[in-house]
């Protein structure tokens, strides 16, 4: 299924994101009269569109993109198909950082989330090294164990500080409804800088994904590149968690899905995962907020319910060569 024209894949994904974004703007609990936009200076349609739907659509595209890229980078640097922001403990570390910031009333929650994610990934990596080599079984165990520990700590903090547990649980299932356009803009700026760096060093990541010894022998500065991608993945995940809580699944499956079309070259897989992750989360969120009108369900539920079967079909379909 891999195309020899990865640029075409990127162009198709970008066009699909644009179309999906426009469609998603049109759907919601209130039927909008778009003609109003052009007939009155300030009207209800404009308010809903700019104040509610546009931030949410942009938020979904951005969060999905950041998580997709984060997963793609982690899978390559850990050389493991299961690596994603969840399994490496970054999501839960970021959530813990954000929870501490909220409880302490600290400004710029995103920085705390990023710091939590960075601490988590280096902790998991450190615990996974045995006799100087990365031990995959240790990696998965350390990630899952630390993830559980961080969640327990979040619950403990919420309980001690009398925060609303239900609200915390809802946030931990992912919530794209509360971000402002300003926050989304600055998160976008941050993510573009990180992703540009990630694409710049992507060829070295390609080589590392074939083996660290091989990377050293062809001249890659392996420790620097690994450190860079650990931090880059933590920043993207931390920003995503600060903006929308913990959304699982995207970081794991989007890189696998995208790889089938762009190939394994990270120079294309990174932008491809950004676009595909955004597109997927936008579709999931649009369903989450329209399927049980006038209410809505957490987007994390939809990503799991729709995403897993789709992912299975794509994986199975790809194997018939």
């Amino acid at each position: 299924m891999k195309t020899n024209k990865p640029w075409l894949t990127l162009a198709v994904l970008a066009a699909a994101s644009l179309v999906a974004g426009i469609i998603a703007l049109a759907f919601g609990s209130v039927h909008l009269n778009f003609a109003e936009l052009f007939s009155k200076a300030h009207n209800e349609t404009y308010t809903i569109l700019m104040g509610i739907r546009l931030p949410r659509v942009l938020c979904a595209l951005l969060i999905g993109g950041m998580l997709g890229v984060s997963g793609a980078m982690l899978q390559a640097v850990f050389k493991n198909h299961l690596a994603d922001p969840f399994i490496t403990g970054i999501s839960s570390g970021a959530a813990l950082g954000a929870a501490i910031a909220i409880v302490l009333g600290a400004p710029v929650v995103a920085l705390w989330a990023v710091a939590g994610g960075v601490a988590a990934v280096f902790l998991v990596y450190g615990l996974s090294i045995k006799y100087g080599k990365l031990n995959m079984a240790y990696l998965l165990l350390a990630g899952v164990m630390l993830g559980s520990l961080f969640y327990s700590l979040i619950m403990l903090i919420s309980t001690i500080f009398n925060k609303d547990l239900i609200k915390v649980i809802f946030w931990m299932m992912g919530d794209l409804s509360s971000a402002s356009l300003t926050t989304i803009f600055w998160t976008f700026v941050g993510s573009v800088i990180v992703i540009a760096g990630a694409i710049y060093f992507a060829n070295d990541l390609n080589i590392i994904s074939t083996g660290e010894e091989e990377a050293v022998s062809v001249g890659v500065n392996v420790e620097f590149i690994k450190g860079f991608y650990f931090i880059a993945a933590s920043i993207l995940t931390g920003l995503a968690v600060a903006l929308s809580g913990v959304i699982g699944f995207v970081g794991l499956v989007i890189p696998h899905f995208t790889r089938r079309f762009t190939g394994s070259d990270m120079r294309f897989l990174i932008p491809g995962s950004f676009l595909a992750g955004g597109l997927f989360l936008l579709a999931a969120d649009t369903l989450a907020r329209t399927i049980f009108l006038p209410g809505e369900i957490p987007v994390g539920i939809v990503t799991g319910l729709i995403g897993v079967p789709v992912f299975m079909v794509v994986l199975k379909g790809g194997k018939k060569k």
Binding site: S209, T210, G219, S264
Partner: peptide, 24 residues
């Protein structure tokens, strides 16, 4: 086998890393 699929060209081209920039 490598974990991820690379073409023969991509694998061989990795040998030129000492002469490339980071972008490859």
């Amino acid at each position: 086998n490598y974990l991820f699929d690379f073409t023969v060209f991509e694998i061989v081209a990795m040998g030129r890393r000492p002469y490339m920039d980071s972008f490859g």
